[in-house]
Design a protein around this nucleic acid. Structure first.
Lengths: 328, 328
DNA sequence: CTGAAAGCGCTTACAG
DNA sequence: CTGAAAGCGCTTACAG
């Protein structure tokens, strides 16, 4: 402290006042001292600094995907001997005792990865004020918050799924999308639409639906689409859960998969493998997304990174048993 | 510090030596000073004590169950404004860069919940030496480590499942167990055996198998059991994953569920609801287990708790569409 | 193994 | 808004 005082041309008591956040210091002096303090990495003697830790904040996510992502983050975190925190933001806001943001500002993790980032400008400002670095993983797009992010190639994945059905010979292809307010759900839907149009079999409005990312939504929209007079021979779904719902709807209507109906999901959850027939899907590299987000966060902790850094990882079409050529 | 010195009848330098773990202090003096230090809750001045945090350590677990358990822990943790850490111990020991135990001793969480506790006496001693309180959740039983624990009523659950099949009229009931080294897998198997015997339809050796907690194991053992000349009309499985494998095996052999074969799982994973037919199962209250473990841990942090405290939560039979009366 | 004395780093109360 | 002086809590080097 004496050194800092000498360099700043002030007395030790003044440095002490800055350290303790007293108000009776000239703004100019304060700035100068703070600058030197930072440069010299000053630490209170005897202060045990809390061990560094990365916090992952989930806004409700398929359990399977959450764990995969945690595994990716953990791999990186272990290499650097950091701790790993877990927060799930309850879907029901009334259940939130304190905002996760307040909580994090008390806990002071070294950095935060936010998954399915539905956070507000206010929360973003709060974290920025607390100087806690932040990275978004698989954001469904709130482009108002300029945060470095990692996501998957939704567009390419949806195109690959569509082409797969076209190559099998399907021409009556239906699409069930995700919620309209979700940017990435739209990205998938529009990719399907574009791929179909380019192939010369434009998506018919009566075969397109807007659903939710849930089993129930797949069941409802599937029943409705498949009960039509001239039903689709193949369905592209917003995610695997919805696709499993469609499978159930198909069976309830006496349709066999894949003989009477081909179904494609999106995500690559474990359950897609356990169900019968195993689900053809577009796998998102959740583990890699977690690892990439952690690495990006570490880069951000080490020094500034362009705010709009965006890492996009490839998706993979996984062909299993729920798709086949159409019957006729 | 001066107060402590006075009360202990020593000089401040001696207290300082104890605080800094110097070796040149008489064992007796050290004990006396440490005692007073603890009683008075002495803290280094200026030391920012790290915010309290609970760490949950998983030994490979169904993703679904892990998240449910985390949710239960989080509910308690939020109430008390604690942090929540996550560690998954890789199944492959060579992947472990440093033992999770060493890592935890650096991180120093306020307490640890270990899930599926396959830890050694050495690790137990390490944590005890670090004075980190420990609770086991859903332990598969390593009774050598005397740790307070929370688990579910495996025996009662398996009995309920068996009685359900008996009440439906099944008399040709098969059982696929879990690994022999798993205490709770044996508990389930023995409960089935006992319930069958009491009902006067003892389990025939040719209908009993020892498997793994996996889809593949269910597929393999299911195929084999159902290909027998006089096959079972119902199968009790070690867990849901295995049961889903059995369902696939049945369909491959042209058997319909539940008309030709009834199947019961154990756990209550989400996928059991998404598959068709929805799986009858014994639900374990994973969220409650997490919450109970967290509460037990908080009690342990607040003061001593009998080492053999064991909380056992009830399981519930969930009847869905994979069970029905036998055909004949 | 322990204490009296000196010292270190920080903070506080006072004066201007 | 700032510094010289006094003080506080802890540690260190020395002596026995």
């Amino acid at each position: 402290m004496a050194t800092i005082a000498r360099l700043a041309g002030v007395s030790p008591p003044t440095v002490s006042r800055v350290l303790n956040g007293r108000s009776d210091v000239a703004a100019d002096t304060r700035r100068r001292v703070e600058q030197l303090l930072r440069e010299h990495g000053y630490r209170r003697p005897g202060a045990i600094l809390p061990s560094p830790r990365i916090e992952v904040v989930f806004y409700g996510l398929e359990t399977n995907l959450a764990i995969e992502m945690m595994r990716g983050v953990q791999a990186v975190v272990n290499e650097h001997d950091l701790g790993l925190g877990f927060t799930e933001v309850p879907a029901d806001p009334s259940a939130r005792q304190r905002s996760w943001c307040d909580r994090l500002l008390t806990q002071r993790p070294t950095g935060v990865i936010i998954v399915h980032s539905q956070f507000t400008a206010e929360q973003h400002a709060q974290l920025a004020a607390g100087a806690i670095p932040l990275v978004a993983a698989d954001p469904n797009g709130q482009p108002t918050q300029p945060v470095p992010s990692v996501s998957a190639a939704n567009w390419q994945g949806a195109v690959a799924a569509t082409r797969h059905l076209l190559e099998l010979g399907h021409r009556q292809i239906g699409v069930i999308g995700g919620p309209v307010e979700s940017l990435y759900a739209r990205e998938r839907m529009e990719a399907c639409r574009a791929a179909l149009e380019i192939a010369g079999v434009p998506l018919r409005p009566r075969l397109a639906r807007t659903g939710e990312f849930s089993f129930e939504s797949g069941l409802a929209h599937g029943s409705e689409l498949l009960s039509q007079p001239d039903p689709p021979t193949a369905l592209l779904c917003a995610n695997d859960l919805q696709a499993l719902g469609v499978c159930k709807a198909a069976r309830q209507l006496g349709l066999r998969i894949p003989q009477d109906l081909s179904v494609v999901g999106f995500d690559g959850i474990d359950a897609g493998n356990w169900c019968d027939p195993a689900l053809t899907t577009v796998r998102q590299p959740f583990r890699d997304i977690g690892a990439a987000a952690a690495n990006l966060l570490l880069a951000l902790i080490a020094g500034p990174v362009p705010a709009l850094t965006r890492v996009e990882l490839p998706t993979t079409l996984v062909v299993r048993d729920s798709t086949a050529p159409p019957r006729s």
